[in-house]
C-alpha cells in the first residue's frame, strides 16, 4: 500500500499538541540511574531569525522501558519520549536523562537522542540527533563519524557551566551558515 503523504503542521497546532508536562521525559528515580538533564536551545531560520512556531520531539531509544507507559503526568505516555514547542524567541527546553551508550550489531553507539522538528514551512519533519560534547564514546560512533568533520559540531550539545541539574545547550539552525546536519527522512 502507498503511504499517506506528509503535510505541514502549520502554525496553529499549539492547543492540540502541546500540553504542560510533555516536555519532560524524566522518570521516577527508581526506574533510571542516570542523571536528569535539561536540554535547551534555539531554533533559527536561514537568516538567523528565531523560529517561534515550531515543536520538537525527542526520543531516547535506549531509555529503560522505552516503548512502555511511564510518566503519569504525560499526555503522551512513553518512556524516553517528550515534546516541546518553541517560544516566540525560538527557545525550547526539555527535561530528560543523560542517555546511555549502547552497541548496535557490535558497533559502539554513543549516547544520543533522536529529534524530529515540525514547523510551518516544513512540509515534512526534519530528523536530527543530539550527541553530548566530551562524551568518551563519541569518537567510536559510526553515525557521527560518517558526518563530515566540518559539520559534526552541529550535532553536539554543549554543557552550560554551573547549573544543577546539568544544562546542555543545543541550537538548531534550519538553513544557512552552520546549518544543522539532518538525516533523510
Amino acid at each position: 500500500m502507498q503511504r499517506t503523504p506528509s503535510q505541514t503542521v502549520g502554525p496553529f497546532f499549539l492547543d492540540a499538541l502541546i500540553h504542560a508536562g510533555d516536555e519532560s521525559a524524566a522518570q521516577p528515580a527508581s526506574a533510571m540511574a542516570t542523571e536528569i538533564i535539561v536540554l535547551e536551545g534555539v531554533v533559527a531560520d536561514g537568516e538567523g531569525n528565531p523560529v517561534g512556531d515550531a515543536f520538537l520531539e525527542i526520543f531516547d531509544p535506549f531509555a529503560p522501558n522505552s516503548g512502555t507507559h511511564s510518566n503519569a503526568d504525560h499526555h503522551i505516555e512513553s518512556a524516553g519520549f517528550a515534546r516541546a514547542a518553541t517560544h516566540a524567541n525560538g527557545e525550547f527546553r526539555f527535561i530528560t536523562h543523560y542517555p546511555g551508550a549502547a552497541t548496535d550489531r557490535q558497533a559502539p553507539v554513543a549516547p544520543h537522542l533522536e529529534i524530529m522538528i515540525f514547523a510551518r514551512g516544513l512540509l515534512k519533519p526534519l530528523a536530527t540527533r543530539v550527541y553530548f560534547d566530551g562524551d568518551a564514546h563519541n569518537e567510536q560512533d559510526s553515525v557521527l563519524n560518517a558526518v563530515p568533520a566540518s559539520r559534526r559540531a552541529t550535532l553536539m550539545a554543549r554543557r552550560s557551566p554551573g547549573a544543577n541539574p546539568s544544562h546542555w545547550k543545543f541550537d538548531i539552525r534550519l538553513q544557512g551558515a552552520s546549518e544543522t546536519v539532518f538525516f533523510d527522512f
Binding site: R120, G121, R151, F183, D184
Partner: peptide, 13 residues
C-alpha cells in the same frame, strides 16, 4: 518554506 528548509545535502538515515 524558503528560509526554513535545509540547503545542505541530507545524510542517509
Amino acid at each position: 518554506s524558503r528560509l526554513r528548509v535545509p540547503r545542505e545535502p541530507l545524510l542517509p538515515m
